[in-house]
Design a protein around this nucleic acid. Structure first.
Lengths: 339, 339
DNA sequence: GCCTCCAAGTGTTACGTATAACGTCGCTTC
DNA sequence: GAAGCGACGTTATACGTAACACTTGGAGGC
């Protein structure tokens, strides 16, 4: 019968079981074998249960010097992609006795400022998918183990990076369109300063350049359906020959492009082809279903967590990009024959 | 020059500034006015900056007895709805010096087991949108302040609840359809044991019962586009008069219904009307745009956090449901005239 | 000249836990 | 019969911080 107003401590449990606090810690920490008798251990466990004892995590973290908690900084939760990343990371973390705390960067898919102001949990490490340079240097200065997701390996100040092979995905999309006969392409680009989007533009240009007579036009839009719609409409109502395909930086942009094309009276894929990137649920909800690049978000999260565990244990994280896969659906077809 | 291998502590800062650790704590805790001279305070701040000092949160939490961190348990991150809830909650939290840690319940939108096994941060309180009874009683037993989101006020063991006025939303949808002349309705229900969905069914039935000659059929589907498609196809290919409208428990189910109707060769809204609930980005990405109920997710999150703050401060949380709004778009029209 | 008061700090403690180091007892072994 | 040893614990300590209680040196009042 300790004080009932405050939570019971291990000392309260010890008193109730008639043992020392150390014994309680031993038993509950599962380190009692050969140090405490089975009957005593049983008594301790019962006392803990009766009192509803929960260890004070702050005290444990302080004592241990680590928290077995890592932070996952994600740019936004407005698609299921990062839900998958979290799921994968959390699964691997759980297998190693770690917890994952999410920090959705408020500015959407852009640079994240200081995640610690908000996610104020004590942390052992950070997995970040997009982060402002100042926040990055702050973390590096803190010596906090860090893994960057989908970031420029050259610009990450020596932090480990884990990347999807976006370049290959764009290559596959472009090849698919070129094979169908497309030559004039509108690139609907995310208007966000992020390496993952720069890669798309670079790789698209590189692949197109291998075929003579090709032409890329670029439209920039914020990552929202309405923004993409507006940008697409604007781009397609300018003079000059109309592109026969729209390559979108992600599926959400593609959904906006669909709306724009519908309003312009263009049929997909007869008049114009559209491609996305992500393979969200959205991709099969729209009509026609979207040709896109499937990213394995959970695998991405798993690799990120594994890399962080490696860093935490002083090992060298595995390198190598995660493969992606082109999924051809109904939104791509050969270009219309010139009338 | 203290040990460089480990992070500097307030004692290191004190030594560097030539003061006591207590003075460092006062200065950095902004409690130094009238206790430390301006020049000394300045010296302390400089030393802290030079050493790259970051307070040890575990130690602070232990000392303070609270963490100013609350946990937000959300059922899933596969729609932007809970991203909005988080955003709202985090904003209000930040205004009060609190942080919010997200715990996405792994089982999707179903009951959440023990969030603490995974989100192992030390917590001051919990906001939970859907939670298994055992986890609920565990939290109540811990005396951990708790606010339930969209939960049965009667079944929450005395925890505060904050609800959207879903019942009114369903009432508005049903009235809208009845006014258009619909009488036979298919209810595409989420196959998930959650109070928020039970309310939908109950309210739909109640409102329909006020008009003679009405008929409700129910199809159950998991909350996924494919699941909804399958359930809708199955329900509409059974014998008997075909419903003239499909009322869906949320927008995602509605997107699945769209796919099913497209495959069955039914035109929306000429042959059949469809309604959703949530007003996700998806609602305007599909064609025709979806008539649905707009839920203000951010406001929901704000109210949840405010209620938790009230509980934490021993005040009585505000009650009253958050209003919702019917958004009529192109997916609803009068039923086809019987041939 | 003595008392009071205030600014400007310092010394010490406690938060709850995990663990290293240390006892004690009974039994075996040589 | 002394030494050794395993089983079963306990005592003591440190983690880094915030805050209470205390000290000191001078300024000011009377």
């Amino acid at each position: 019968m300790a004080r009932s107003s405050t939570r019971p401590t291990s000392r309260d449990v010890a008193q109730a079981a008639g043992v020392s606090q150390a014994a309680v810690s031993l038993v509950l920490g599962d380190k009692w074998r050969g140090r405490v008798s089975e009957t005593t251990a049983q008594r301790v466990r019962e006392a803990a249960r009766d009192l509803g004892y929960r260890p004070n995590l702050a005290a444990r973290n302080l004592r241990l010097g680590h928290t077995r908690t890592v932070l996952l900084v994600v740019p936004a939760l407005t698609t299921e992609f990062f839900a998958g990343v979290y799921t994968g990371a959390a699964r691997v973390a759980a297998e190693h006795g770690f917890g994952v705390v999410l920090y959705p960067s408020p500015e959407g898919i852009g640079p994240a400022r200081d995640p610690f102001a908000s996610a104020q949990a004590a942390l052992d490490g950070v997995i970040a998918s997009s982060m402002a340079a100042d926040a990055l240097t702050a973390i590096r200065g803190d010596q906090l183990p860090l893994v960057m997701l989908d970031s420029d390996p050259a610009g990450s100040l020596g932090a480990a990076t884990v990347n999807l092979d976006i370049a290959d995905g764009v290559r596959q999309v472009t090849t698919h369109l070129l094979d169908l006969g497309h030559r004039r392409i509108l690139h609907l680009a995310a208007d966000v300063p992020s390496w993952t989007f720069e890669v798309r533009a670079k790789e698209l240009a590189a692949r197109m350049a291998t075929t003579p007579g090709t032409d890329i036009r670029t439209a920039r839009a914020p990552i929202s359906i309405d923004g993409a719609q507006a940008a697409t409409e604007a781009a397609l109502t300018t003079p000059g020959p109309r592109p026969t395909a729209v390559v979108c930086d992600d599926d959400k942009l593609a959904a906006g492009a669909y709306k724009a094309l519908r309003r312009l009276g263009l049929r997909i894929p007869d008049d114009i082809s559209v491609t996305g990137l992500d393979d969200l649920a959205l991709a099969t909800a729209i009509d026609p279903e979207l040709t896109t690049v499937r990213l394995d978000a959970e695998l991405f999260g798993e690799h990120g967590m594994r890399a962080l565990l490696a860093v935490l244990e002083g090992r060298e994280p595995d390198s190598g990009d995660i493969p992606v896969e082109l999924v051809v659906r109904g939104s791509t077809a050969p270009p219309p024959t010139p009338a």
